[in-house]
Each structure stands twice: as C-alpha cells, then as structure tokens.
Design a protein around this nucleic acid. Structure first.
Lengths: 247, 247
DNA sequence: ACAAAAGTGTTGATCCTACACCCATGG
DNA sequence: CCATGGGTGTAGGATCAACACTTTTGT
C-alpha cells in the first residue's frame, strides 16, 4: 500500500453480510499480534471514487464483483481512532515504522455494508496485517478493534430497514432457494418470527419469484420447491420501489 | 479560520430546510465575486466530532441550537471538488493566497440536513466568503457551486423518507399551527396531494397533537383550530418508533 | 349575501392476522 | 409406519381510499 496518494483522514470499513445455517454472518479479519478482529477496510486513493474503493475492498477480500454495496453512515467521533492495534504490527515489522505517522492521524470512517451469497465466497483473502479471515455469526462476534462493534450494529439496523425497500434475498441467497429458507432469512434480519402462510402469500404477491418446478430432496420431510428471482420482474420492481411493509 | 488543525480531505455541507408560504426552502449563501451560490458548510476541527461541527455550522449561520440535524450521505466522487469558486476569492483578497493549498485538496463532503422553524431564523449570518445568505424555495434554486445541486436533491429524498418515521412538523412548523398548514407541509415534502379528511384522521390517530382551543383568525373563511405537539406523547412515540405509512 | 376554506362520517375495498389439517419424504 | 417439516385457505378485524355537504369567517 502506498501511503502517499491516499485521501488523508478518511477510511472505509465494510460490513460484509452473508447468510448460512440460519444465521447472519460477517466477514472479519484477525489482526496479527493480537487477539482482536477487525472489519475489512482500507483507504481511498486520490484518483478513485469512495464508492469505487469500497467495491475494491470487497473485491480484494472476496473475489466478488457487482455486489450490492451501500454506504450507510460516517463515523466521525473525535476520539474514535487510535494506534493501539497498529503498534504491535510495527514492533513486529508487519508494517514499516514509517507508516506509523499515517495511522496516527485522526480518521473518520465511512461504513458500507455488502450483501453476498455465502457460498460464493469460497476463499476469502486476508490482508497483510491479518493472519486469517473468517465468517463470524452475528451472535458471537469476538473482540474488535476501535468502534467496529458499533459499526456492525449500525449496519445491522440499516439492513433491517433496507428489507422494507428491497427483497434482500436476491443478494444473500443462492440462485435457487426454498420458501422456508427465504423466510428464515427474513426472520433473522428482522429478529422476529413470521407466520409461514402469511409470509409466503406476501412474498409471492410481490410477483418477483418464479417456481423452478424443482424440489430440494434429501431431508426426511416433504420436499420444498425451489424458487428463483424473476430477473425481469425483479428489476422492474426495484426500479419503481417496493413497499414491502415488514418492520 | 485556522487551516491547520482541521481534518484534511473532508468537509461538511448542511442542507437547512425551512417551510414558508407552502414551500420548502433551503438556506443558501451567495459567493462573493461570483453569481453562484453554495450550501452552508465548513470543515472539521481535529478536536471535534463531525456531528458537533455540523451543529456548529448550523448554529453559526442561524443562531439556533438543539436543532434536528441528520447526516444523510457522503459525497465521495473523485472529481467532485475543484477550486474554481475559490480562485476569484483569492484574487480579490477575500481569502489569503496561502489558503489555496488547502482548498486545492481533494475533498469528500458529508451531507447533513437540518429542519428548522422558518420564523425562528430572523437574521441568518453570511460567512466571510459570501455577500449574502437567503432562503431559497426549492423550485427556484439558483446556480450552485460544485455538486451542491445534487446534495440538495439527495437531502430532499432523505427528508421524504424521514417523514415515514418522524412527524417532521414538530421541527419545521412553529409551536402552534393549523391542520391545513401541517397537511400542506406533508404535501410539499411528499410532492403529492392528500385527502383532507383522511389526513386529519391519520395524524390525529398518532395521538401526538393537542388542540389548543385557539383559532387562527384573520382570513375570510372559517377559522381553523391551532394545534401543538404534545411533548410527552411525542417523545414516547419517537422513542418506540412510528409507522406512519405515507410514501 | 357571497366567497373561501375548514370541519365532519360513511361505505366498500383491501390488507393483515390468526389459526389447523393434510401431504410428501427419509429413515 | 413414523417423525419431520412443507404446503394450503378462510374468516374477522383493521386500515385505507374515495367521496359531498354544512359551517364559519371576512368583505
């Protein structure tokens, strides 16, 4: 990373959501020389848009492109940043001593959240300051650097609100999925439980799902149908806005 | 303004909304040495929170404190800032030549919108780079610097969405107001027209208005009643969230 | 008296909620 | 054949949209 030619004072943090085993998960990096974890993040090159750089961070960690990514909040507390997570990295020569000055700035950070299909992230890639990267279920997030707990919590609320305007299943589930899977996703995001019959009726009434005719076999119960999003109808609907009315 | 001890690369722009004569208006500053106008804005001192600085800008221009103020978007395009509006100011010694370097940075800007009672802003105060400050109705915004048109448009959409979660009349209208005035505010923000009887029923059903018993006289028609927000019920309602369901 | 705008209620349509039984699959 | 979870319909209540006449005020 070249620390000149970066926009000073501003960083990006990405809350990358996936859904697996009926849990929302976020991609976290374990800092080297420390027991603390962090959100994937980075800085803004002077010749790039902030949105581009957020997409770039997402791509670098997941290999994915064209992902739903949305800016949700600027975290600008005067005392939010410090160098306590950087110092061990410099001591151990993970980062050059010359980079201390960069990290010793006051940073505001702009939070983005991304919605990705869990299974499409087969090999997430850690950065040079981390020794691993992993999906963590939201209920058991480990200790995080700086205000990253707060950033995740904020993203979670933003996602909950997004659900009223966008059928997020399109972004978080695989191409084909069952109605109970979709419902479980909604219940997890909304932190509530929903009536099976009413949920199905409501979702189908949006007119954006297609029944593939296929069924998911393999479990000791009636095989649920597999659905896909009808790309054409979906695009139309997003275009003119939803009014899904959960929440 | 001391240009050292500011957070570099990041500025604040405030879209200050007022409501007067059935129009939404925003406070704009006319740049000296130019026909263009700008949003009230500023920079972030290193020892202040970004939110604090936004409130400070609002206070400096309007004299008001404790105003509803909300961050709504970071504008981060690589090419959004330039110095074309600064150069004439330096040529005419409105700004010192030494400040050019500061303004010649790339800036991202964080947009805030504020909701104020129009009549409470009796003497808005221009800054040193402007020769006047005025309320402009949204339909006839003059030519603006940089991407300020886009910022206003974004704020307007954010306000429209806010209407579903917060009864913004509390912030935009005087203490006592009539039902038709409140309706007109809603119609303006939503850019639609609403049925009088249904509107009244819906608003009253929120249980946050009190009839003062007084009436507004002076017009050649039946005198409308004056209402106030019931502070206690209002606070309770904001606390546990609305579901106003306009939009 | 007249013009202008405020106040008021009902009806039908739609949407939401609550709820229980049968069916397909794997073991 | 049994356990598990998926699929399905209806009725009552709440909410929403549409709609017109009467009242009050100033001129």
């Amino acid at each position: 990373m070249l620390l000149h030619n970066l926009l000073p004072g501003l960083s990006i943090d990405c809350v990358i959501f996936g859904f697996h085993q009926n849990e929302l998960r976020v991609l976290l990096l374990k800092m080297k020389q420390s027991e603390r974890w962090s959100l994937p993040g980075g800085f803004i090159r002077l010749d790039r848009d902030v949105d581009e750089e957020a997409a770039h961070i997402l791509h670098t960690r997941t290999g994915l492109d064209n992902i739903f990514l949305k800016q949700f909040h600027l975290f600008g507390k005067q005392n939010r940043s410090n160098t306590s997570h950087i110092e061990p990295l410099i001591e151990q020569n993970v980062l050059p001593a010359s980079s201390f000055q960069w990290f010793d700035q006051r940073f505001a950070t702009i939070g983005y959240y991304a919605l990705v299909e869990y299974a499409s992230v087969t090999q997430p890639i850690a950065d040079t300051t981390s020794d691993c990267i992993a999906w963590c279920p939201l209920p058991d997030i480990p200790s995080l650097i700086l205000d990253h707990h707060q950033i995740i919590e904020h993203a979670r609320v933003a996602l909950k609100e997004e659900l009223n305007f966008r059928p997020v299943g399109r972004n978080l589930l695989p191409d084909e999925f069952t109605m109970p899977e979709l419902q479980s996703l909604y219940e997890t995001i909304l932190e509530t439980s929903l009536d099976r019959r009413n949920f199905r009726r409501k979702i189908l009434s949006l007119g954006i799902l297609k029944d593939t005719g296929k069924k998911r076999l393999g479990a000791a119960n009636k095989a649920p149908s597999l659905y896909t999003f009808d790309e054409v109808k979906y695009a139309e609907a997003v275009e003119k806005g939803f009014k899904s009315g959960f929440l």
